[in-house]
Design a protein around this nucleic acid. Structure first.
Length: 569
RNA sequence: CGGGGUGUGGCUCAGGUGGUAGAGUGCUUGCUUCGGGAGCAAGAGGCCGCGAGUUCGAGUCUCGCCACUCCGACCA
């Protein structure tokens, strides 16, 4: 391909609305263009790289025995009504009506149509298990699209769904997908970790996320440097804590704390560490007010809390609710002397505290020397705080570390949530009806492309791994005036192309510097420069990822490039 | 959904107190250059986000709307 003919424009300046490196580079290298917030078109170079990722995904899915099909992007409302998700998705779903007023949506995820398809096709256990997948655009009207293609409103996802006769079958299907995912992300040259995740609104018994380590990732991950344990911060369990023995319970006192509402203010006022306080936060969980207590320096993990109550809707209690339940202004809630009888949940750490400070449920007052058992009794003592750096690993007990990651893949054991709702059943050997056991498995294809760039760039631009590079080699003649140079460059290009390589030749009437800058920016893995030593039959061979420039003959360069490409397969 | 910010050539931005729009970069042409985004010269390119209003006159002031964006909350 001739660069002079390539539909591409690179940009010197960083577009003002791009925050993270991958987004900036994708725009600067002209891989994509923004159409609206969170909606992008791919230009030829970007689309080629995208299709490389897609091809890897497709190959590994096929190899794993999954069968590809394609569902509509526009789906009728009824498809989502039976499972309750027409309501549950809320404003995040793009909705539309046809001319007759019938309701449709742009598919945000496709459990329902896949389940319907299997329900209507398979009746017998003899035809199970089956795993189906598609690579399709998904639509979610995100509250806040950002980071380019990392969190967008239109994106491509590979979603797969497995249907089994029993749990053992699901385990097998799940493991099969997990292995395929590892191969896919390995082939994309991603440094990722597999973490335990919350199965959330998808329901089901287990799930794991494939996280690409990145400082700009939106998820926090707790991982153990000593063993292989890793979990999403919202999933990582925090252990029970032993209460110190033989601590004398001091007499409880009410103390006046005028205008001292926050933990910071309390620390200042009481001259104490945050570990001496327990904060009490009121939540409205599906219409019920609940008090949740964690140590002063901890954060409540709303995912854990929601799971405790199997909540569908959960919010911080309103000011009015807080005042009604505590009889005090916001900031003075505590477990003792609540005006209304509500459930009190205490974190494990709180249960181990002695002589601590809590709100007095009276404006401008706190209690000190409060003790569990004597002064109040929590209804439940549970794990509701988020994991933090240094927490013991649940597997080996050593201190854990925290990092951030971009979620590129997620695998779930769904169970029968959708097969029950949509009556997706099979007949077993005894002719008895059973719900199929499902799993679902997603990969954000467009997001994966961005994640690859996040891990492969330098100050000059993208450094594509060979496996996903839009072109594998770029031939750069440093001048278009010298016939020897032009001829040799063309010969190299033609020879490489003939040998099956994907190769660009920068035949533009540009100065060498411009061509080098562009070659670096768009990240082509191998560069062959034909210039001043062309007359002696020599060219320069350079890898984008390295800094070494090797002089060799054209034939040697061609052979080296082909070898490099072969080695990456 | 709450709070902030910004909308001016393709891109990055400048345009006190109202007077009919500018720079850099990119683009076109010519000359000189020619190995890491060259120099000089000459050009092309703008419903100044949209709609009202104030005014003789609005990029600039007022009001409304829209879009984009950042922080937070939220999120298979």
């Amino acid at each position: 391909m001739r660069v002079s003919k390539l539909f591409m424009s690179t940009q010197r300046e960083v577009p003002s609305d791009a925050e993270i490196v991958s987004h900036q580079l994708m725009l600067r290298a002209g891989l994509m263009r923004k159409a609206a917030a969170g909606i992008y078109s791919y230009m030829p170079l970007g689309y080629r790289a995208y299709r490389k990722v897609e091809a890897i995904v497709r190959e590994e899915m096929d190899r794993a025995g999954a069968q590809e099909l394609i569902m509509p992007a526009v789906l009728p409302a009824e498809t989502y009504m039976a499972s309750g998700r027409w309501e549950k998705f809320g404003p995040e779903m793009f909705r539309l009506k046809d001319r007759g007023g019938r309701q449709f949506c742009l598919g945000p995820t496709h459990e329902e149509p896949f389940t319907e398809a299997v329900r209507d096709t398979i009746r017998s256990y003899r035809n199970l298990p089956v795993t189906l997948y598609q690579i399709q655009h998904k639509y979610r009207d995100e509250k806040r699209p950002r980071f380019g293609v990392v969190r967008s409103r239109e994106f491509v996802m590979k979603d797969a769904y497995s249907f089994d006769v029993d749990e053992a079958g699901l385990d097998k299907s799940y493991l099969n997908m997990k292995e395929a995912y590892c191969k896919i992300f390995d082939r994309c040259n991603l440094d990722y970790i597999l973490v335990d995740a919350d199965s959330g609104a998808m329901g089901g018994s287990g799930s794991q996320e494939f996280m690409v380590k990145s400082a700009v990732g939106e998820d926090a991950i707790a991982y153990c440097p000593s063993c292989d344990y890793a979990a999403n911060e919202e999933k990582a369990p925090c252990p029970k804590v032993e209460a110190p023995k033989d601590v004398e319970m001091l007499e409880m006192e009410k103390i006046e704390t005028p205008h001292v509402k926050t933990i910071e203010e309390l620390m200042e006022f009481m001259k104490s560490e945050p570990t001496a306080f327990a904060k009490t936060i009121l939540y409205n969980i599906d219409g019920k007010i609940v008090a949740v207590m964690v140590r002063g320096d901890r954060e409540i993990n709303e995912t854990k809390l929601g799971n405790l109550f199997d909540a569908t809707e959960m919010n911080l209690a309103s000011f009015e609710e807080v005042e009604r339940v505590t009889g005090a202004a916001v900031g003075f809630a505590g477990p003792c002397g609540l005006k209304e009888k509500i459930e009190v949940i205490a974190d494990y750490e709180v249960a181990a505290m002695t002589n601590f400070i809590v709100g007095a449920n009276e404006t401008d007052f706190h209690f000190k020397n409060v003790n569990i058992g004597r002064d109040f009794t929590p209804d439940r003592i549970v794990d509701v705080r988020g994991a933090v750096e240094g927490d013991p690993c649940p597997k080996c007990g050593k201190p854990m570390s925290m990092c951030r990651g971009i979620e590129v893949g997620h695998i779930f054991k769904l169970g029968t949530k959708y097969s029950d709702a949509l009556h997706c059943i099979y007949l077993d050997k005894d002719g008895k009806e059973n719900s199929m056991i499902m799993g679902c498995y997603g990969i954000g294809v467009s997001r994966t492309l961005a994640a690859i760039i996040e891990q492969h760039y330098d100050e000059n631009g993208i450094i594509w791994p060979m496996s996903v590079a839009p072109y594998q080699v770029i031939v750069v003649p440093t001048t278009s005036q010298d016939e020897t140079v032009v001829k040799m460059a063309n010969e190299i290009h033609d020879a490489l192309e003939k040998a099956g390589a994907e190769v660009l030749i920068d035949d533009r009437e540009e100065r060498a510097g411009v061509k080098f800058k562009d070659a670096d920016l768009i990240g082509i893995p191998i560069r062959i420069t034909v210039g001043r030593k062309a007359a002696e039959g020599k060219v320069e061979y350079k890898l984008r990822a390295g800094s070494e420039v090797v002089e060799m003959t054209a034939e040697e360069a061609i052979a080296a490039a082909l070898k490099e490409i072969e080695a990456s397969k």
